[in-house]
């Protein structure tokens, strides 16, 4: 099974470790993983800001880059949501192109969804130990139905103790460019999320989308919390990667 890894632009730039963790998880599960070098961004930042052409240009690029794979996997519910739910409306004038894109979108998966529901992974040998709380990122949750997948996987790691916050499904305030355009509301929403998460006394806040994680961690650090870790679920599931920074 040949899997194309769509690293996503945020992971590529901000936290490559998540990409390597994803790679490790997929390879451990027996996939042949290829990282096409010409991949960039899914187009969501522009698309959600009103530039439809961003979506179209990136959808064409995505098709060129990934069409040859059996599956495409991304460590992000947000980028996968863009591909799965929004690429489908971009080329009404070109049904043939749209059809190819739809076929590819249907083979594109968010990481935990792919591990739990397609690969049906049962063994994970992560040495991770600690109490975590899980934030459900909006696009993954509401566009892709990613809710139990990460929890089922995390439950297979003996050292992980999951303690739910009171509103894990409440938006953290990231919202892509929203977090900059309406930063004050985003900050308040991040604040609410941080307090809800900290109330669980977990040592780590874990989620499946780096955007949300940067938003949450950014607020936590500004509030002076240097202790609570903010991790991508791939990092927890794969265990620590030897530091390559």
């Amino acid at each position: 099974m040949q899997v194309g890894l769509f690293v996503t632009c945020l992971v590529d730039m901000m936290r490559p470790r998540i990409g390597f963790s994803t790679l490790k998880l997929l390879e451990q599960a027996g996939c042949v993983v290829v990282v096409p070098p010409d991949q960039t961004c899914c187009g969501q930042p522009g698309f959600n800001s009103g530039d439809r052409e961003s979506g179209r240009a990136m959808a064409r690029r995505f098709l060129r880059t990934f069409e040859s794979f059996d599956y495409v996997v991304a460590p992000s519910g947000s980028c996968t949501g863009m591909i799965r739910c929004h690429y489908s409306q971009l080329f009404p004038e070109d049904p043939a192109l749209q059809q190819r894109l739809d076929a590819l979108s249907a083979r594109t998966f968010e990481l935990t969804d792919f591990l739990a529901n397609v690969l049906k992974v049962e063994r994970l040998d992560s040495p991770y130990r600690g109490t975590i709380t899980y934030h459900d990122s909006c696009s993954g949750l509401r566009e892709l139905g990613v809710k139990t997948q990460p929890r089922r996987l995390l439950a297979r790691i003996p050292g992980v103790h999951l303690k739910e916050m009171s509103q894990p499904e409440l938006c953290c305030g990231f919202g892509g460019t929203f977090s900059i355009k309406l930063g004050e509301i985003a900050t308040r929403m991040a604040d609410n999320k941080c307090h809800d998460a900290l109330d669980t006394q977990a040592d780590a806040i874990v989620g499946g989308d780096l955007g949300c994680l940067l938003n949450i961690e950014g607020r936590l650090r500004r509030l002076g919390d240097r202790r609570t870790r903010v991790l991508h679920v791939a990092e927890v599931l794969a265990g620590p990667e030897p530091e390559q920074d």
Partner: peptide, 26 residues
């Protein structure tokens, strides 16, 4: 990016992109 940094820090990237590091390791 004041809209972000007025209320939040930005966790700094680790210095090299995934693509660059991947190219070296594989």
């Amino acid at each position: 990016l004041d809209g972000w940094t007025d209320g939040r820090d930005m966790p700094a990237p680790s210095g090299r992109t995934f693509r660059d590091r991947y190219r070296e390791t594989r």
